[in-house]
Design a protein around this nucleic acid. Sequence first.
DNA 1: ATTATTATGTTATAATATTGCAATAGGAGA
DNA 2: TCTCCTATTGCAATATTATAACATAATAAT
Lengths: 165, 165
Amino acid sequence: MSDGKPISIAFEQHDHNACLGKAMQAAQGYCEEHKLQLTPARRKVLELLLQEHRALGAYTILDLLREAGFNSQPPVAYRALDFLVENGFAHRIERLNAFVACALPGTEHSPAFMICRQCETVAETQSSESNFNFSTTADFSGFKIEQTIIEAKGVCNSCAEIEQL
Amino acid sequence: MSDGKPISIAFEQHDHNACLGKAMQAAQGYCEEHKLQLTPARRKVLELLLQEHRALGAYTILDLLREAGFNSQPPVAYRALDFLVENGFAHRIERLNAFVACALPGTEHSPAFMICRQCETVAETQSSESNFNFSTTADFSGFKIEQTIIEAKGVCNSCAEIEQL
DNA sequence: ATTATTATGTTATAATATTGCAATAGGAGA
DNA sequence: TCTCCTATTGCAATATTATAACATAATAAT
């Protein structure tokens, strides 16, 4: 379960340009270190995701790629997204069929997401499996957990305030 | 967080006919009590889901409906599934885009699922939100959780054994 | 009986995702 | 450098999942 503050600052004000630049640098470095090819399409998709603290659908990304002069067939987006997800730069948000940049790239972690149903902002937090009873094999001796998806739908403060009116 | 044994007996041997019959009876009763119409299509879809401890996709259900002599256009399946999910007789498994019968119908609960990646059996367990840190507002003062999806992918014992070979 | 509500029939189409194969680029070893 | 091998991209087609829109029918409420 979550053990602390959300990792993501999605619901807070922050210097987003710095936020993006730092993340791209980190991705760059990680790829060099791990001999991964951060090709133009992959880099662009990561940038697009980092520009938002929201999940973007594959076809939204595809449109943005097209605007940026990339080839615009679906596999372009899906392949880039697969790469980003496999290598921990992004997560798939199942309940939205959409993708969000990872808030903790390069780290083994078990993420949990908070999704505002109003503004669709997605914040990532940690659900450290270690102290998460759900994974204690005692509970379900018949099953071995490999990966857990935790997605919470709700409203963020700003949207909640607006709804009060 | 899970607080006990899995509700579902999906990974265990059991008298499945009894299991199904009881559930249908309960659904029947619940609908009468709550003035819900358990129409033929809805009833049939619930039966189909109860016959499996696996999640079924909408189009699989549609095929089965057709075999059973029902109208086979997509809305038939989706409408029935919507009804069953809204009224707590079934759950949607996001990571599979599929549906599974609820193991605790008629009860307010916050389910968690264990999905075998091999045999696709789905077992439901409880993640009682009350003692689930994830929902303590202290952790993320910027968000109010309304509904949480927890889906664990893994392998069940029988499949794990087969993999050992 | 009349009306309102809820459910179904039907057609079409939207949104999401994958397959398969050909072409090309990047990296590793001779 | 050249060649081979693998990873990536281009491209066309198509599969899968889901919804919209509107007409008709069944049921419930008055």
